[in-house]
Simulated assay, not measured.
Amino acid sequence: MKYLSDQMLIEVYHRAIDLQLDSAFIDLLAAELKEREIRIGQVSA
Rank of each mutant, 00 (worst) to 15 (best):
1 M>G: 14
1 M>A: 12
1 M>W: 05
2 K>C: 10
3 Y>G: 05
3 Y>L: 08
3 Y>P: 08
4 L>Y: 07
4 L>C: 09
4 L>E: 04
4 L>M: 14
5 S>G: 10
5 S>I: 06
5 S>F: 03
5 S>H: 01
5 S>A: 11
6 D>N: 15
6 D>S: 06
6 D>W: 02
7 Q>Y: 11
7 Q>A: 12
7 Q>I: 06
8 M>W: 03
8 M>R: 12
9 L>F: 07
9 L>R: 00
9 L>H: 00
10 I>K: 00
10 I>H: 00
10 I>Y: 00
11 E>D: 13
11 E>R: 02
11 E>H: 01
11 E>C: 03
11 E>N: 12
12 V>I: 07
12 V>W: 06
12 V>Y: 04
13 Y>S: 00
13 Y>V: 00
14 H>Q: 04
14 H>E: 01
15 R>Q: 10
15 R>P: 00
15 R>Y: 03
16 A>S: 10
16 A>I: 01
16 A>F: 01
16 A>W: 02
16 A>T: 06
17 I>A: 07
17 I>D: 05
17 I>E: 09
18 D>K: 06
18 D>F: 04
18 D>Y: 12
18 D>R: 08
19 L>R: 07
19 L>G: 05
20 Q>H: 15
20 Q>K: 13
20 Q>I: 04
21 L>C: 08
21 L>V: 06
21 L>N: 05
21 L>F: 07
21 L>K: 12
21 L>Y: 09
22 D>L: 07
22 D>I: 03
22 D>C: 06
22 D>F: 03
22 D>P: 02
22 D>M: 02
23 S>I: 10
24 A>T: 08
25 F>C: 04
25 F>R: 04
25 F>P: 01
25 F>D: 08
25 F>A: 04
26 I>V: 15
26 I>S: 01
27 D>T: 07
27 D>F: 07
27 D>E: 14
27 D>A: 14
27 D>K: 13
28 L>E: 08
28 L>F: 08
29 L>G: 04
29 L>E: 00
30 A>N: 11
30 A>Q: 14
31 A>I: 06
31 A>H: 11
32 E>L: 10
32 E>M: 08
33 L>G: 05
33 L>H: 10
35 E>R: 15
35 E>D: 11
36 R>L: 07
36 R>Q: 02
36 R>S: 04
36 R>E: 03
38 I>L: 13
38 I>A: 09
39 R>E: 15
40 I>P: 03
40 I>D: 09
40 I>W: 04
40 I>M: 05
41 G>V: 01
41 G>A: 12
42 Q>A: 13
42 Q>V: 02
42 Q>C: 09
42 Q>S: 15
42 Q>E: 11
42 Q>N: 13
43 V>D: 01
43 V>F: 01
44 S>V: 12
44 S>W: 05
45 A>D: 13
45 A>I: 04
45 A>P: 07
45 A>N: 11
45 A>S: 14
